[in-house]
């Protein structure tokens, strides 16, 4: 059996007296898009830095494609690429020179570098800007060049640390498309994000990191299932209607006394009887919305919780 693309077991890391990672474990399958979701300071960047051989963990093991990141860091460096939070490009070189420099430092031979650079400049629509100094590039162009550089060596695993932070919505959408394209080509992608929507949109598997621990892990669907099923939201014209409805249905009032939400996950019977009861009492809701839980709810439910027990839904 082949090793998973990324395997992390019991990773711990502290700085001085601050625990940054506290027993982090997860696995990423080949060709998967894996999202590590968490707020600022949750330990996302530290995880990326350990996996990309930049720093060493205090405890635990991590391997990429079966190679240990500490003991076989030279081999790991051959198969990964890292794109950090800030575009790590050389501002005083042109786009093409950046690619040639990085290609050389990846120890690719000259023909390969030239061929890959041309391919990537075309792929990222940077051919016209190839001869211009990067200082003159827009933020989006820099990000594209940054990603192009990380693809030079045809890596098996790509680390993207908050790839869309600071991008405008249009650049974000095109970044998402780029990431999906890479995944289609069989590359394993590890990305960190603070955006729930991003993880929901892109990831095959999501791990939620809070205060250095994985508090939940699974697909977006699995995580959503954690905090409950779909709900029917009822809005009323006035608070009197709202209160009467709440008493009839034995539900707590929400919002400013004008809103109720009832579980809609089970059979239609419970919904029908609830609506019938309101009808019999001449209570007519102003609006009715069907609402699926979002990752925001997952996030709030899991990280707002004081109880930090690890839940595994995969």
């Amino acid at each position: 059996m082949r090793a998973p693309a990324i395997q992390v077991r019991g990773l711990k890391k502290s700085y001085a007296h601050k625990v940054v990672l506290d027993d982090v474990s997860f696995e990423v399958e080949r060709g998967q898009i894996f999202a590590l979701l968490g707020e600022n300071g949750a330990g996302k960047t530290t995880t990326v830095r350990i996996l990309s051989t930049l720093i060493q963990a205090d405890r635990g093991t991590a391997s990429i494609d079966g190679c240990d990141v500490t003991l076989e860091s030279d081999r790991v460096r051959q198969i990964i690429s890292l794109t950090g939070q800030y575009a790590a490009v050389d501002e005083l070189l042109t786009g093409k020179e950046n690619l040639h420099l990085m290609g050389g430092l990846l120890h690719l031979d000259r023909q390969t570098v030239r061929r890959r650079a041309t391919e990537l400049l075309t792929l990222f629509d940077l051919t016209d800007a190839a001869g211009k100094i990067v200082k003159t590039y827009s933020g989006g162009m820099r990000r594209k060049l940054d990603i192009a550089i990380s693809l030079l060596g045809s890596p098996k695993v790509i680390f993207l640390d908050e790839p869309t932070t600071g991008l405008d919505p249009r650049s974000r959408a095109s970044m998402w498309e780029m990431i999906r394209q890479l995944a289609r080509e069989g590359v394993t992608i590890f990305l960190t994000t603070q955006y729930l929507e991003e993880a929901d949109q892109l990831a095959d598997k999501i791990a939620v990191l809070a205060e250095g621990r994985i508090v939940a892990e699974g697909t977006a669907e699995q995580l959503k299932a954690v905090i409950g099923e779909e709900r029917l939201e009822l809005h009323f014209h006035n608070s009197a209607d709202g209160r009467r409805a709440a008493t009839l249905l034995h539900l707590p009032m929400e919002g400013d006394g004008l809103q109720l939400s009832l579980p809609a996950g089970g059979t239609t019977d419970s919904l029908r009887s609830a609506l019938n009861m309101l009808h019999e009492h001449d209570i007519v809701p102003a609006t009715v919305n069907y609402r699926k839980p979002t990752l925001d709810d997952v996030f709030m439910a899991l990280t707002g919780n004081t109880e930090k027990e690890v839940r595994h839904y995969a």
Partner: peptide, 17 residues
Amino acid sequence: NGGLFDRLRSMPARPAA
């Protein structure tokens, strides 16, 4: 501080260079 050394250190490039 700009991340370039971090990228290079995650590559096969020799650190001494």
